[in-house]
Computed example of a mutant assay.
Amino acid sequence: MGNTGLRPDESAQLQDRDVTIIKDEGSGQRILKIEIRGNCGVGYRKGMPGAVLPYERVSKRKQLKPTDCLFGNTTREFINAIPE
Protein backbone atom coordinates (compact mmCIF):
# COMPACT_ATOMS: atom_id res chain seq x y z
CA MET A 1 0.00 0.00 0.00
CA GLY A 2 2.93 2.28 0.55
CA ASN A 3 3.87 4.63 -2.28
CA THR A 4 0.48 4.24 -3.97
CA GLY A 5 -1.79 6.74 -2.21
CA LEU A 6 -4.53 4.16 -1.83
CA ARG A 7 -7.04 4.47 0.98
CA PRO A 8 -7.55 1.38 3.18
CA ASP A 9 -10.99 0.63 1.70
CA GLU A 10 -9.57 0.87 -1.84
CA SER A 11 -6.64 -1.42 -1.07
CA ALA A 12 -8.92 -4.04 0.52
CA GLN A 13 -10.74 -4.48 -2.82
CA LEU A 14 -7.62 -4.30 -5.03
CA GLN A 15 -7.17 -7.32 -7.27
CA ASP A 16 -4.12 -8.35 -9.26
CA ARG A 17 -5.86 -7.52 -12.55
CA ASP A 18 -6.22 -3.89 -11.41
CA VAL A 19 -2.46 -3.23 -11.33
CA THR A 20 -0.23 -2.68 -14.36
CA ILE A 21 3.44 -1.71 -14.49
CA ILE A 22 4.01 1.12 -16.98
CA LYS A 23 6.84 3.47 -17.89
CA ASP A 24 6.20 7.06 -16.80
CA GLU A 25 6.62 9.40 -19.78
CA GLY A 26 7.89 12.32 -17.70
CA SER A 27 10.57 10.60 -15.65
CA GLY A 28 11.21 7.40 -17.61
CA GLN A 29 10.80 5.32 -14.44
CA ARG A 30 8.57 2.29 -13.99
CA ILE A 31 5.43 3.02 -11.97
CA LEU A 32 2.17 1.27 -11.12
CA LYS A 33 -1.06 2.18 -12.90
CA ILE A 34 -3.90 1.17 -10.58
CA GLU A 35 -7.58 0.88 -11.49
CA ILE A 36 -9.86 1.73 -8.57
CA ARG A 37 -13.33 0.22 -8.80
CA GLY A 38 -15.92 2.14 -6.82
CA ASN A 39 -19.49 3.37 -6.72
CA CYS A 40 -18.84 5.95 -9.43
CA GLY A 41 -17.16 3.54 -11.87
CA VAL A 42 -13.45 3.08 -12.47
CA GLY A 43 -10.82 5.63 -11.53
CA TYR A 44 -7.07 5.51 -12.02
CA ARG A 45 -4.11 6.15 -9.73
CA LYS A 46 -0.41 6.17 -10.39
CA GLY A 47 1.91 4.71 -7.79
CA MET A 48 5.42 5.92 -7.02
CA PRO A 49 8.46 4.10 -8.46
CA GLY A 50 9.13 2.64 -4.99
CA ALA A 51 5.94 0.56 -5.21
CA VAL A 52 6.97 -1.47 -8.27
CA LEU A 53 9.49 -3.86 -6.68
CA PRO A 54 7.29 -4.74 -3.65
CA TYR A 55 4.35 -5.39 -6.00
CA GLU A 56 6.48 -7.69 -8.16
CA ARG A 57 7.71 -9.60 -5.08
CA VAL A 58 4.20 -10.05 -3.63
CA SER A 59 2.75 -11.10 -6.98
CA LYS A 60 5.52 -13.65 -7.55
CA ARG A 61 5.47 -15.01 -3.98
CA LYS A 62 1.70 -15.47 -3.82
CA GLN A 63 1.39 -16.65 -7.46
CA LEU A 64 -1.74 -14.55 -7.84
CA LYS A 65 -4.55 -15.17 -10.28
CA PRO A 66 -6.08 -12.06 -11.90
CA THR A 67 -9.07 -12.02 -9.53
CA ASP A 68 -7.06 -12.63 -6.32
CA CYS A 69 -6.92 -9.78 -3.81
CA LEU A 70 -3.43 -8.36 -3.29
CA PHE A 71 -3.71 -7.62 0.41
CA GLY A 72 -6.18 -10.24 1.66
CA ASN A 73 -7.83 -9.53 4.99
CA THR A 74 -8.03 -5.99 6.31
CA THR A 75 -6.77 -5.04 9.76
CA ARG A 76 -10.36 -4.81 10.98
CA GLU A 77 -11.01 -8.44 10.00
CA PHE A 78 -7.88 -9.60 11.86
CA ILE A 79 -8.95 -7.74 15.02
CA ASN A 80 -12.51 -9.07 14.86
CA ALA A 81 -11.17 -12.62 14.60
CA ILE A 82 -9.48 -12.38 18.03
CA PRO A 83 -11.48 -14.48 20.52
CA GLU A 84 -12.74 -12.76 23.64
Rank of each mutant, 00 (worst) to 15 (best):
M1Q: 08
M1D: 05
M1G: 09
M1H: 02
G2I: 06
G2C: 05
N3T: 09
N3A: 04
T4A: 03
G5A: 07
L6D: 02
L6H: 03
P8A: 13
P8Q: 14
P8M: 04
D9C: 14
E10H: 12
S11P: 07
S11A: 15
A12Q: 05
Q13S: 08
Q13Y: 09
Q13E: 04
Q13T: 11
L14S: 06
L14F: 12
Q15L: 12
Q15S: 12
Q15R: 13
Q15M: 05
D16G: 03
R17H: 12
R17C: 12
V19R: 00
V19F: 09
V19T: 02
V19D: 00
T20H: 13
T20F: 10
T20N: 07
T20V: 13
K23V: 09
D24S: 14
G26K: 04
S27Y: 10
S27Q: 02
Q29Y: 08
Q29L: 09
Q29I: 04
Q29R: 15
Q29F: 15
R30S: 06
R30N: 15
I31P: 01
I31N: 01
I31S: 04
L32C: 01
L32W: 05
K33T: 06
K33D: 11
I34L: 03
I34N: 00
E35C: 04
E35H: 12
E35R: 13
E35A: 14
E35W: 13
E35L: 09
I36P: 03
R37I: 14
R37D: 10
G38C: 06
G38Q: 11
G38V: 03
G41I: 05
G43W: 03
G43T: 09
Y44D: 00
Y44H: 14
R45G: 04
R45F: 05
R45C: 01
G47A: 03
G47H: 07
M48A: 14
P49N: 01
P49I: 04
P49A: 09
P49L: 06
G50T: 01
G50F: 00
A51Q: 03
V52C: 05
L53A: 11
L53V: 10
L53W: 08
P54V: 06
Y55Q: 04
Y55T: 01
E56K: 06
E56A: 10
R57I: 13
R57P: 00
V58H: 08
V58E: 00
K60F: 03
K60I: 05
R61Y: 15
Q63Y: 02
Q63T: 03
Q63L: 10
L64I: 10
L64K: 11
L64V: 03
K65V: 06
P66E: 03
T67G: 00
T67E: 13
T67Q: 15
D68M: 01
D68R: 07
D68A: 05
C69Y: 15
C69W: 05
C69T: 09
L70Y: 02
L70G: 04
F71M: 01
G72L: 09
G72V: 11
G72K: 04
G72H: 10
N73T: 01
N73M: 10
N73V: 09
N73G: 06
N73I: 11
T74W: 00
T75Q: 01
R76G: 03
R76M: 11
R76W: 14
R76T: 11
I79T: 10
I79D: 07
N80K: 11
A81Q: 15
I82G: 07
I82W: 12
P83I: 12
P83G: 13
E84D: 15
